[in-house]
Simulated scan of single mutants.
Amino acid sequence: MTTATAIAPRDPWSLVPSLGNLDAYIRAVQAIPMLEADEEQALARRLRDEQDVQAAGRLVLSHLRLVVSISRQYMGYGLPQGDLIQEGNVGLMKAVKRYDPDQGVRLVSYAMHWIKAEIHEYVLKNWRTVKVATTKAQRKLFFNLRSLKHQFKNEADNTHVGRAGLSEAEIQRVARELNVRPEDVIEMETRLAGGDVALEAPTDDDGDSPVAPLAYLADEGSEPTRVIESRRRDWLASQGIVNALDALDDRSRRIVEERWLKVNDDGSGGMTLHELAADYGVSAERIRQIEVAAMKKMRKALTEGEPA
């Protein structure tokens, strides 16, 4: 019996108990097996092509443990873990609905972005001192300011304390590092200083301390769609340009290479239109026309040969 068959009851949600008993819920989701890559791909295609609700349920079930793990990183705000899990599950379901199995990314990587985004929204709406933290700058400061202050304290003792408990130099430094205005730094520091909820993540009995959400911002470069875009750019700059040049005849290829790809030792480029015209015994306008036609042919080759 395969793993897929083992976790395919008539009602997949019957595997998970009510959130009323959080410990039982966590034990249950930890016991649900993860899907193999081929199983995940097959289920995702069934959901995308056939709108198969049972396939969606299987995908969600196998990633509930991921939501539990991420929710622990946000417990330093004094909010119930059950509520954090509930919001994270909403993000997981959104991820499953939008997931494209043909993008070459596992669902776990794609879902992390949506789970964190949903929990971020919940924290910002329910932590009383930052209910108005709705702009991008305020969100950056909310999740990073405390960790930056701790970093400053470790580097050196402050001798000049400016407004809101930060020196003027520190305010400017925070603004530069997070790309926000100094006024935004001062405002958010004032709000955080008036709170009565500990922002640092708690340390459990065996000394393990989860990562506090204010210690980092999600790296946009690791977001799945950006990773795919980066891979596409890398392909275009390497194999893509080789394929496009191979689609040209010898004369067109040389003209393109001389005009756009060649760099001499002294930093200068290749031949000019007039130099190429003299070399081939035609007018500069004719060389320009060949170059334009070659570029169109290369663009077509890049579009047809682009990997899925």
Rank of each mutant, 00 (worst) to 15 (best):
T5S: 14
A6Y: 05
A8V: 02
A8F: 14
A8Q: 06
A8T: 12
R10Q: 09
R10D: 15
P12E: 06
G20D: 15
N21I: 09
N21K: 09
N21T: 12
A24Q: 14
I26N: 10
R27I: 06
A31K: 12
M34W: 05
D38C: 02
L43G: 09
R45N: 09
R46N: 06
E50H: 15
D52S: 00
Q54S: 04
L59F: 02
V60Q: 02
L61C: 09
S62L: 03
H63L: 02
L64Q: 10
V68G: 03
S69W: 02
M75A: 07
M75N: 06
Q81I: 06
G82D: 11
D83P: 08
D83G: 07
L84Q: 11
L84N: 07
I85G: 11
N89W: 06
M93P: 10
A95D: 07
K97F: 15
R98Y: 15
D100Q: 14
D102C: 11
R106N: 13
L107E: 07
V108R: 14
S109I: 09
Y110C: 11
W114I: 05
I115L: 13
H120A: 13
E121M: 09
E121W: 08
R128I: 09
V130H: 12
V132R: 14
T135S: 15
R139M: 14
R139P: 08
F142W: 08
L145E: 04
S147K: 08
K149E: 15
Q151E: 15
F152V: 03
A156M: 13
A156N: 12
D157H: 10
D157P: 03
D157S: 09
N158I: 09
G165R: 05
L166S: 12
L166V: 07
S167Y: 08
S167W: 10
E170W: 06
Q172R: 14
V174N: 06
L178K: 02
N179T: 03
V180S: 10
V180E: 05
P182Y: 05
E183A: 13
E189F: 01
R191E: 14
L192S: 02
G194Q: 12
D196M: 08
P202D: 07
T203Q: 13
D204G: 08
D206N: 06
D206V: 07
L214K: 05
A215E: 15
Y216R: 13
L217I: 10
G221D: 13
E223N: 08
E223V: 13
V227G: 07
I228L: 14
R233K: 11
L236P: 00
S238E: 09
G240F: 01
G240H: 01
I241Q: 10
D246H: 05
A247Q: 05
S252F: 00
E257W: 00
E257N: 00
E258Y: 00
E258G: 00
R259Q: 04
W260F: 15
L261C: 04
D265W: 03
S268C: 02
G269A: 06
G270T: 01
M271E: 14
M271N: 00
T272D: 01
L273E: 05
H274L: 04
E275A: 10
A277W: 01
A278C: 00
A278F: 01
D279I: 00
D279M: 11
G281D: 04
E285W: 00
I290A: 01
V292I: 08
A293N: 10
M295C: 02
R299Q: 12
K300T: 03
T303F: 01
T303N: 03
P307C: 09
A308Q: 11
